[in-house]
Design a protein around this nucleic acid. Structure first.
Lengths: 197, 197, 197, 197
DNA sequence: GATGAATGAGAATTCATTCAT
DNA sequence: CATGAATGAATTCTCATTCAT
């Protein structure tokens, strides 16, 4: 029973993700979401109290999912450079997936600047991202491949700033063939920043 | 006649900026804009065909204005490091102004991912920003303070990615007192990236 | 089987009474009723064809109940004045109970003005009420305490009009402490009307 | 300008009165009101913030109007009995008008039992009605036609209770031809109550 | 019998846009 | 030119009712 409901909610959230990716946060209607989910309008309201509620759950859902994937990627690797490489590879997963996620994510960032709930969810996502950076940097310092002078917290923040900055810049270019350039350059820029002189 | 109309349009655009900063791109109404401008709803429609039109003009207006300010800042300085310092200082102008501009700007980025018109306006802004970076880097290479190996085009893009990444991260923190941290760290990160080894 | 079903119906009707008293005729939902009854929404529909059906049964149920109580009250007494006193005392039973019943009853009167089914149920209630008045008046005339000139039918209608008029006026005051004033005054007014000059 | 708007509001209120009289408080839609007013749905919202707002204004409007008519009726007369006669005549104006007004009024009474705003508006109406009764009774006592023992405040309340009780009972009968009976009987009952023994 | 998930019709409300004054 | 009244399309949300389990 409970399980079925949980699946339904996830079905709606996935539909909401598709719908927002296609139409944009403020243009998407509950009917759109219902259509993508292949259910009636009523179902959406049955599982979520209101629109804001769906969107909060959606932001929670996608940021948690992204973090999980990124975290898994670095856990599989053992050296700092391998982890960093895997992290950037995973973040720049593909033009199609990055476009979809970042379209939705930038929509949420736009909302978050005036919505405390989204801000908090995003903050938890940031902390997760920073913790990945922190882990890589700390290991790299131990290994001697990264500068001993780095402050892991600060550098982790700059890492994420660079990643988001690059992917937003790429998204705005609307050119899938630049994806590789941004991936490579982002990786090299971060490497340059971190490596011991 | 023409002059009066131009002033009227600018009055409306400035009001639109205030209105979007306060209410957000998708929540703002033409009545809000008219209210901020101290005119009637009719006036807004007299000078702009429709809502989309106002917003295109607004994005054009604020990105042009920002570029002008940033460009002026580096023109006043003579060495690469002075220019870079002035650029970052100008970009991180103040918590209040950055919050206002970036709220509106992120709103537009969110829209731009699905709106070609905004994308083009933003692209021109990017090119302007990149040209500033290019100028600083080229000069720094000549002066010998920046690495000779840098590709000015690429590095300029990374500079802007770092700046936007930092300011968005700061905006999401909703903590004015972190503004200084991000300004300083952003500057140092860029310096690290560019300086000759 | 039949008995169980009858109990179930009554359970739902009592819940409906609570629900209407709390939320009002037009705001009450079947879910509210189900909640008050401690059963699922399905049960409500199992025992009643639809919403209108429940409400008809409810009006029937509460008017029958009220009449039974009032009738019992006067049957216990033997003189006209005792009966009248007991009647008014029973009608003005308590602030809490009067508020609950009259809220629901006025809701039904509002509906009844456009709903023939409710009108008929209310008419039977009126006839019952009038019969109580009739009995008291006829006895009083026999006893010589009430004016011989009274038309029992007409006076019974006026008695009920006075009672409903008073209780509605009291209900609208939203002041429990006026309950006593209206009870006393209503009794005295009716007494004045009936007594032989 | 202001005048036009005031007329528009009144036009909408009159339409709302028709609409509620026909469909009932809780069934009436803003579209119904707009239709009766011969305007678009938007107009209703242009002049009233929301549905509750319209209804508050409507209750205010009709109770003020009724009071004005009743007050005018007694002002024209000079003796207590003439005033009383005129008052009852005016209150029982005609089957058609009483049906319309009392349908709407009972709807409001039903709502008022749970809505403080309506309660207050109704209370002001009550006070106005009571003041009419008070005036008649005081004059009658002076003239010696009414009992010197009457408390004018209390008797005024009983007068109104009798009137409302009678008209509600009549409304529930759904028989226009009983209107005369209730008018006559109500007048006689009140006369009996007030006259000196 | 009982449950509660699913449906979809229907209502309030919001606003861009139009246009008479 | 400017105003703001009027329109009605579009959206969210609520719930009676149905029906598979």
């Amino acid at each position: 029973m409970k399980k079925k409901a949980e699946e339904r909610r996830e079905q709606v959230l996935k539909a909401a993700f598709q719908a927002v990716a296609s139409h944009g946060y403020d243009s998407v209607t509950l009917q759109d979401i219902a259509d993508y989910a292949g259910v009636s309008k009523g179902v959406v309201h049955y599982y979520f109290q209101n629109k804001e509620n769906i969107f909060s759950a959606l932001l929670q859902f996608i940021t948690a999912q992204i973090y999980e994937i990124e975290h898994k990627a670095i856990t599989d690797k053992h050296t700092a450079l391998e982890k960093l490489k895997a992290y950037v590879e995973t973040v720049f997963i593909s033009p199609a997936k990055n476009k979809k996620f970042y379209r939705v994510y930038v929509d949420f960032l736009a909302q978050a600047s005036r919505n405390h709930t989204y801000q908090e969810i995003n903050h938890r996502f940031y902390e997760n991202c920073w913790s990945i950076g922190h882990e890589i940097i700390t290991l790299g310092k131990k290994e001697g491949v990264f500068s001993i002078d780095l402050d892991a917290d600060t550098s982790a923040k700059m890492m994420r700033a660079m990643i988001d900055g690059c992917l937003i810049q790429w998204l705005m270019s609307d050119q899938d063939d630049l994806h590789d350039f941004y991936k490579k350059t982002c990786f090299e820029t971060i490497s340059t920043l971190l490596r011991s002189p």
